[in-house]
């Protein structure tokens, strides 16, 4: 007895793992792909960290020198020359507490805002979830932030040891620092990927990013306290989602500044909106950017 022949395979009835088509809608985000490529994310973070300082003599020491020099400059110019208030705190500490989170935010934007243009070669040759690239940039920048953060803690300990009256909110620090970092990272990533998506076709924005970030620092209470701002500008300043984050950071670590739950709530909402919009736009662009970049 011969076996009956298997029925002819009908293409339409088969299961398929992947469908490639022109446009899969705005919200088909393939976020599960991101999880599958988590090892790649880790490799990128590690590469960014290792590769930057290969063949430099001082290596990661550069992470210290950069913020130290910036803080020193601020101290001389804003405190020494312009005599801006530092809420009664030692200027060095005040500026360091402002620039540490700000630098992280700024670095996150600048490093992610050129994702498509600088990775065009890589993206043109192979597929992986493109979001891995900006995500890894934001995470590897965290290492730089960590070193500056240690610097801040060291400086704080030194001033406390000297008997300078500073009152850090230790409980708040432990509870809220991760949230603040998450907000910084989320906002930096969100703005960065929106910019990078828009620059694939129109390069104009790249010119804007660098000095835009610089200008934004002055629209955020980094080198001055919010308390010093005249009330007529205050509303506008508080619209800036970075304001309450920086202020919260300073009030936790140095005990002075305006800590406001409603401000942080507003910032979190903005971060959420910007980040989601960023992911959606980024996802939209990654499918066709090779044709325009």
């Amino acid at each position: 007895m011969s076996q009956p022949a298997p029925p002819p395979v009908e293409t339409e009835d088969l299961e398929w793992d992947l469908e490639i088509r022109a446009s899969t809608g705005w919200f088909n985000l393939h976020l599960q792909d991101l999880w599958r490529y988590r090892d790649l994310l880790r490799m990128f973070v590690w590469r960014d960290f290792v590769a930057v300082y290969k063949q430099t003599i001082l290596g990661p020491v550069w992470f210290f020198i950069q913020p130290l020099l910036t803080t020193a400059t601020f101290t001389i110019i804003f405190s020494g020359v312009a005599k801006l208030s530092t809420d009664g705190l030692p200027p060095l500490l005040f500026y360091l507490a402002g620039t540490t989170p700000w630098n992280y935010f700024a670095a996150a934007i600048t490093k992610t805002s050129n994702t498509f243009v600088t990775n065009a070669n890589l993206f043109g040759k192979i597929y992986f979830p493109r979001l891995v690239t900006p995500l890894s940039a934001v995470i590897s920048t965290l290492i730089q932030f960590g070193i500056q953060f240690l610097l801040l803690l060291g400086m704080l300990a030194w001033y406390l040891f000297q008997g300078v009256p500073i009152h850090p909110d230790w409980g708040g620090i432990l509870l809220l620092t991760p949230l603040l970092i998450l907000l910084l990272a989320g906002l930096g990533l969100g703005v960065g990927i929106i910019v990078s998506s828009l620059t694939t076709k129109y390069r104009d924005l790249t010119f804007l990013v660098n000095f835009g970030v610089q200008l934004a620092m002055y629209a955020t209470p980094v080198v001055y306290p919010l308390s010093m701002v005249p009330s007529k500008y205050r509303f506008w300043l508080e619209l800036n989602p970075m304001t309450s984050i920086i202020e919260a950071f300073r009030s936790l670590y140095l005990g002075v500044g305006t800590f406001s739950w409603s401000g942080l709530g507003y910032s979190s909402l903005v971060v959420l909106v910007v980040l989601s919009a960023g992911v959606v736009i980024f996802n939209r662009v990654e499918k066709s950017f090779m044709d325009t970049v």
Partner: peptide
């Protein structure tokens, strides 16, 4: 790496 203008795979 890039998506088609029309059709599906």
């Amino acid at each position: 790496v890039t998506s088609p203008t029309s059709g599906r795979i």
